[in-house]
Every structure is written in structure tokens, then in C-alpha cells.
Design a protein around this nucleic acid. Structure first.
Lengths: 345, 345
DNA sequence: TTCCTATTTGCATACGTTTGCGAAAACGCT
DNA sequence: AGCGTTTTCGCAAACGTATGCAAATAGGAA
């Protein structure tokens, strides 16, 4: 046995397929074939794997990417991470992609058109096999460019009107409806909305659902303020709402992250929740379940959303001619103590 | 002008240096030199840049990496993201590295030795230029392997005893001391500690600082329980502490993430904070400043830590012979309402 | 002008794989 | 044993860039 010695000639740690080829007494193509899963005789397999193990050989993914055009990297672009929902999404995405043999090239980009364009361009430079965007909008020009390069894009937690781009969201409009019905059933009559950013499909859909749901009950939203998915903006909105002449008896907030700010603000003003006003959020991030907030909220089924995202991504990579699809996943309303509950029927 | 037409011959979007070379009437080496910053005449620069712009050419980083050995990618391995500190760190790291022209390949890996080894190996396969680990420990064998491949490693928010590996942390032991002094000055006498995971240098250092600081005042920690950086474990620890025969009048918690759980638990038990017991955390994540918690805590200066991390990383990439360094950055104690404040002198 | 030096540029090769093609070998069948 | 068919495997050419080397050109001093 000589394989306890580090190797015969591995200067500076780089072992190529040629080294293992020479050692196994075969050609470099042979070792390529056994490592890329192409056909090779059992004997060949044995020889090559043996030599490779002895030398500590691992194929170079970059070189592989050069010739195959597939890098096994997925570009992930995120707008922000202060909303707990996104770190968790990243965590899940990473886990799922990793077990499928993909790696993540991550970019944070503020949600402006040119920033996004720059970032996407850089991702294409690295010839990623696909791009997942979380909560960022893409211009049609940009999606077209990706399509031209044959790079599939799927948007996570954001929809897009144009065709040719896949998206995975929760059922935001029916979620909004559900909130409306729940609040109405709870006896609320003056229902206000601190909306998610109007530039986001998610925000618009939730708002639409709320409006439609209230309309079905013959009600109208008393106030709508765009909270921009921002803590400070949402807090200011809450103050504005509560200092009006006829404050609301319920506030539906566009996501949990803003809802926490609203709760903090209301408590600071001495208004009782849910005594004076009920508060409902959207997402059901872990923080919503912590006793300090105990927020009633619509759950976005993160795991299933992530799995759907990865599934469509990989399907589209495998078959580029596959049409894009918009997937919506349903999530329940989670009852906690921040909103008055309807009496049992 | 013909450059409004997409190009003469760019089938499927891939434009190589040959294409722009041909159009500019020069050699491919020339366009390489222009784009890699090597010397070239002004005339050459003009011709090449013009042709490149017309064709929408961008150099292929993977091909470039193949020959130069530098991929301009940094591997980032994280243990978890539920502690708000790490998403923020990721956000800053991404921003700083991006503006230096680096891209990050991110891995989430539970903090077990073999997981980490796998992940690091995969990073080396992609020939990243360096690896940043946040809150994960690396075996000496592993760091040795990185060194053998000439890949610098810097640990973020975690130290390592062995030589040859850089780390950036805050001044954890003096942070622990500061907490001790503050609590003692505030008249606390029975001080307990829910420690960070004993397997982490950060946790051990903070604990040591606390113990030393109390010793200087002639006191001893009444209880030490390892909170494992976990919410549930910390909550259980808090319950245990408070249901003893002589409960503490102050608890120093190993990080904010656990401190929130402790606060939730104490409130649930009806104990008054800071009336009955003071609580102090570590990190000063944004959540600590939210009214729902308003936690007194030691700030870890995230921005400066990130900058130091990137600085050492890039320095080590530029000069591989550079010795590793352990950097500690000081952070203040942030006074809020979760701990009794000493009377003004 | 002439000679020497400094700069510019093209040619060829290298980086570590994959893959089409053809030769050789193995196999199945009569 | 002989023939046709399949499988195995090596050779060589890609993939898109960087770079040492040599040829060509430009620039300067006498």
C-alpha cells in the first residue's frame, strides 16, 4: 500500500483528471466518463475510482461548466433581509438546492431597476443555470435578455404580468379575502389597511382581496396607506390612522414585519390590542408566534413555496422549451391574540 | 451606424472575445489585454471598446478563472439565519464584497464537523478565492487543507486557537467584564448566566469576562447554564433559574436571540423586568431596540467587523504569505430598560 | 540617417474538462 | 469458426480566456 503517502506528484494540491488517468493507466476521457456518469466498463470504473481516491481527485466544476455550459450554480437575488421571511427563504432554498447538487450565488440588490439589471447581468456573466428572485421585480427588457440567454427565471413571492416568466406566490388575493371575512365575522366595521408596497404584486393582491371581501359584506376599507414594507413608514401610518377623528377598529397590515411596528406603535399610544383595535399581519414568520407579539396572521407556507420554486426552476433547466407557470399556494389564517375572534357559531 | 442592429452574428447571445476581435480587426489577445487592464495603446483601447460595446461583449469570468486561477468568488458559510445578526452580516458582507468586485457563493451548514468539511470541500472545488465562515468552527485538519490549496480563511464572529487562521470578533471578554461591572454597580448580587454554546469561542469568552469581572467585585456567578444559542433551550434555562429556591436578580444572556426568549419567558411567569430581575443580552440586533423588548445589551459593531473581515480577506488574497491575524473590535454597552441602571454618581 | 531601446501586438499554448468520431475489442448468434 | 452488432476507450478538438515569446513598429539620441 502506498496510498498513505500523499501522492507521487501532487504539487500545490491541484490534481487533474490527467494525473488520475496516468496513475490508472487510462486516458483522461475515461476518467471524465466515469465521473460524469457516461458509460464505462465496470473494470474501468474500479480502476479510475481507485486512482482518484488515492490522489484525492475531484473534478473541477469550472472547467466542466466551460464545456457543458452548465455551471450548476443558481443565482439568487434578494432585496432585503430585515424581514425575517427572507432569511428563512434563503435557508430553505439553500438546503433544497444543495441536496439537488446546485450551489447558490447570492446577490443583495436594492429594488431599483438599474441595480437589478446590473446584478442580473453579472449573474449571466457567471453563466448560472437559472435565476431566482425573491421580492424583486424585473423589467420586461431584463426578462427578455435572460430568455435570450436561455436562463430560466422564477420569481419567489412576487408575480409578474408579462408572459414567459414563472412565479411562485401564496394565494394573496384569497388571503386578503379571508382576512376580510374573519374581521367582519368578528364584528369589526371600520377596517383600515396598511398596505404592502404598491409596486409589488403581492401587496396589490392582498389589498384587492381585502377590498373584495369587504365589498361582499357591504363594507368599504376606511383607509389605505402604503406602508412600503418599511417599519418606520408603517409605524407612522399607524399613528396617522389612530389619531384621526374616527379611528379604525381593525387594521390589516401588508406583512408581519410591518405589523410588528404597528403593534409597537399602538402599545406606545396606549391603545389596547385587540380591545380597541385588532391587528392582522401576513407571512406568519416565527417572530409572530413569540409571546411579545402573538400576532394573528395569514401564513405563507414557506416550505411548499420553496419546493415549488426549486421544482419549476429545475424543470425549466432540464427542458428549456417548457412554458413558464404561475404557481399559487394556499395558506391558512393563524389565530392568535392580536385580533378579536368571532364568537363560536 | 449599424450598432442598433443587435449584431452581425451573435447566435444565442454568446459573444466571445474572438467576435469582438474580428470586428475590431485585431487579435483576441488584444481584446483580452484591454479588458484585463494589461498594457495596450490608446488606439487599441478605442477600437476594442467600441467593438465590444457594439456586440454587447462581456468577458466570461469562468474562462478567466480557469487560466488565472482566481474566480473572484468568495465562499461564505453560515450556520443559521434565525438569529437576526447573521442575515445582517450577510447583507453587509455582500454589499462590501460586491463593491470590491467579488461575488459570494453561500452555503448554510449545520455546525457539525462533517457537514462543514463537505461544504468547504465543495467551495474549494469551485476554486473560490477565499472562505469566510460565520459562527462555524473549523477543524484543524480542514484549515490545513485550505492552507494547502492556498485558500485564505477568515472566521467571522468566532475565534480559533490554532495558528494560520484569521478571525474577526468583538472584544468578547471585555464585553463580559463590562456587563459584570454594570450589573454590580446597579446593585445586583445574585447574577446568573445563560451562556452561549460552550463549543464557541465567543460564548466562552463572554462567560470568562463575566466571571472575571464579578471576581474583581468579590462575587461569583450563581448559576451557569449553556443556552446553546437556542431559543427553546434558553427559555427552559430561564424557567429553571427562576424556580430555584433563591432566584437571581440579574441574568446575563449569551446573545440577544436567546435574551428575547428569556424575556418572553419571564413575562409569562409574571416576573417583572427589571423590577425582579435584570436581563442583559449581547449583539444589539435591531430587534433589541424595538419597544416590545427594549433590551440592554452589548453592541457588536457589525459594520466595522464586516469591513475588517473583508479587509483581511482581500489582503490575504493579494499576498498569500501574509500572516494570519486575530482582530477584535470593541463595542459599547447599550443602555435600555431591561436592566436596572446604577444611580448617577 | 542609423542604431538602440521601448512599446505594441499577434501567435501559440495552457487551463481542466467534455464529447464526437473511429478503431479495437467484446459479445451474441448461427 | 465466422459474421454482424454492440460496447468500450483513446484521440483530438472544442469551451473562452490569459500570457510568454518573438516579430514588428515607434521613438529618441547622436
Amino acid at each position: 500500500m502506498t496510498n498513505d503517502r500523499k501522492s507521487d506528484d501532487d504539487l500545490n494540491g491541484k490534481t487533474t483528471s490527467f494525473h488520475v488517468a496516468k496513475r490508472a493507466g487510462v486516458s483522461a476521457s475515461a476518467v471524465s466518463r466515469v465521473f460524469s456518469g457516461a458509460s464505462a466498463s465496470p473494470a474501468m470504473h474500479a480502476k479510475v475510482r481507485r486512482a482518484a481516491k488515492d490522489l484525492g481527485y475531484r473534478p473541477n466544476p469550472l472547467a466542466r461548466a466551460m464545456v457543458t455550459g452548465k455551471s450548476r450554480m443558481i443565482g439568487l437575488v434578494l432585496a432585503y433581509l430585515d424581514n425575517q421571511f427572507y432569511p428563512l427563504a434563503l435557508e430553505r432554498l439553500s438546503a433544497v438546492l444543495q441536496e439537488r447538487g446546485y450551489h447558490i450565488l447570492v446577490f443583495l440588490a436594492s429594488n431599483t431597476e438599474d441595480k437589478i439589471a446590473t446584478v442580473v447581468q453579472e449573474l449571466m456573466d457567471y453563466s448560472v443555470d437559472g435565476i431566482i428572485t425573491a421580492s424583486v421585480a424585473m423589467s420586461n427588457d431584463l426578462t427578455a435578455r435572460c430568455a435570450a440567454h436561455g436562463i430560466p427565471v422564477v420569481m419567489f413571492n412576487r408575480g409578474q404580468d408579462g408572459p414567459g416568466i414563472s412565479s411562485v406566490t401564496s394565494t394573496n388575493v384569497s388571503g386578503g379575502r379571508r382576512v376580510a371575512e374573519f374581521l367582519v365575522a368578528g364584528g369589526h366595521r371600520r377596517i383600515a389597511h396598511i398596505a404592502g408596497w404598491a409596486g409589488s404584486s403581492t401587496g396589490r393582491d392582498r389589498q384587492r382581496g381585502l377590498i373584495e371581501g369587504l365589498a361582499d359584506a357591504g363594507l368599504e376599507v376606511t383607509d389605505i396607506i402604503d406602508g412600503m414594507y418599511d417599519r418606520e413608514v408603517a409605524a407612522a401610518a399607524a399613528r396617522t390612522l389612530m389619531s384621526g377623528t374616527r379611528p379604525p377598529d381593525a387594521i390589516f397590515v401588508g406583512n408581519d414585519h410591518m405589523a410588528f411596528a404597528v403593534l409597537d406603535t399602538l402599545r406606545g399610544m396606549g391603545v389596547s390590542v385587540p380591545g380597541d383595535v385588532s391587528v392582522i399581519g401576513y407571512d406568519d414568520v416565527p417572530l409572530a408566534a413569540w409571546p411579545a407579539y402573538d400576532l394573528t396572521t395569514v401564513r405563507q407556507p414557506l416550505n411548499r413555496m420553496v419546493e415549488a420554486t426549486v421544482e419549476t426552476m429545475l424543470a425549466q433547466i432540464a427542458d428549456p422549451s417548457r412554458p413558464s407557470q404561475k404557481i399559487e399556494i394556499d395558506g391558512p389564517l393563524i389565530l392568535r391574540s392580536s385580533a378579536r375572534t368571532p364568537p363560536d357559531p
